[in-house]
């Protein structure tokens, strides 16, 4: 593998880790209005994400920064093409981030309702729109030879794109329900498990539909056909998805959650393995497509960044794992009584 190819897959991995980690707190944010029955249950949800959401979100910043560093042309064309969608994602993340901090600071039901609304919308928008964006990348977007986008926000809202949005929404919702089941006690715990099971069934149906739709709307199966061994990745993803339900049935919640994380990672890799080496196909003319080779940084930058990534990513994973381990327990009365708890 050459430098560009290594970076291509490292780049996919960063996005995958973002959805695997932040996915569960986005998911809980989306489920918040549907599953919490009272103020205490809402606080359990906020504090189940509490110590970890901020670190999770940095994977997105890192994925963004690495796109800029390793594939500046892709960064420029993709982010300016997806302008409105990306702005909506950013505003979602902004109002969501402050909701954690602001919500508990004033004792008033109206105040709390406002921030609950922000939490819901701020979780829904990134989950759906990033899904829509990824599906459109798999499918190709109308960029011309100058890297100028010849469409609008609504160009992205085609059936396949929307299906991608629904798929991502369901992936993070299941992920979030599982996390809540792990963190909550009593009735909320039971309901989270039931919800995870219900959502899983819908997810399975949508995932099958997406796999089929990809054959019609995209050409990502070409790489798979050329190297049939690659189908193993799809197989692993499907097995992981089935594993979620199997572990749920056995009450092995952590395993179900990890299976769900693998499913999410698989969904990210699935499309990009099919695209490789393309990173942003043009639907106007395949010659306008951005690839790992025509969009990348200079070899020197790629080398330096690879060295840094190989040092820092493992270190980050190490101390993030330490933080996860520190807060693996249930959200208890004691957690909720902390002065600075959410």
């Amino acid at each position: 593998m050459d430098l560009q190819a290594i970076w291509f897959f490292l780049w996919v991995l960063l996005w995958a880790v973002y959805f695997m980690t932040d996915g569960f707190d986005l998911g809980m944010g989306v489920l918040l209005p549907f599953i919490a029955r009272n103020e205490r249950e809402k606080r359990v949800i906020y504090n189940a994400a509490g110590p970890l959401w901020d670190g999770n979100e940095v994977w997105l910043i890192t994925a963004g920064g690495v796109t800029f560093a390793a594939f500046p042309v892709l960064y420029a064309v993709m982010f300016s093409s997806l302008y409105s969608a990306l702005m909506l994602v950013l505003f979602g993340l902004i109002v969501r981030g402050v909701s954690f901090e602001f919500r508990g600071k004033v004792e008033s039901p109206g105040w709390k309702r406002i921030w609950d609304g922000c939490m819901f919308l701020g979780s829904l928008l990134p989950a759906v729109l990033l899904g829509v964006a990824f599906a459109n990348i798999f499918r190709g977007i109308p960029i011309d030879g100058e890297g100028v986008y010849q469409g609008t926000l609504f160009t992205l809202l085609n059936p396949y794109g929307l299906l991608g949005g629904i798929l991502f929404l369901l992936l993070v919702s299941v992920h979030g329900a599982l996390w809540l089941a792990i963190k909550a006690e009593g009735d909320l715990h039971e309901r989270a498990i039931r919800l995870a099971k219900g959502l899983w069934a819908i997810l399975l149906a949508v995932a099958v539909l997406f796999l089929a739709a990809s054959a019609i709307s995209t050409d990502i199966y070409r790489n798979y056909m050329a190297r049939p061994l690659l189908f193993v990745f799809i197989l692993i993803t499907v097995l992981a998805l089935l594993g979620v339900r199997m572990f749920l049935a056995r009450g092995a919640l952590w395993r179900a959650w990890f299976s769900s994380a693998v499913t999410i990672a698989g969904a990210c890799f699935y499309g990009f393995i099919g695209l490789f080496p393309r990173m942003l196909p043009s639907s106007l003319n395949s010659e306008f497509s951005l690839t790992a080779y025509n969009a990348s940084s200079s070899p020197l930058t790629l080398k330096i960044m690879l060295g840094l990534a190989l040092v820092f990513v493992p270190i980050v994973i190490l101390y993030q794992a330490w933080a996860y381990n520190l807060f693996k327990g249930k959200v208890t009365e004691e957690t909720l009584s902390y002065e600075d708890a959410y």
């Binding site: 940095v58 890192t62 560093a69 390793a70 820092f312």
Partner: peptide, 24 residues
Amino acid sequence: GSLLAIEALGFFFLESILIGVWIF
């Protein structure tokens, strides 16, 4: 771009993960 990526990987991660540890 590399400077922003280094900032995120080397430092922004550290503060963001530890802030949760400090609060809880």
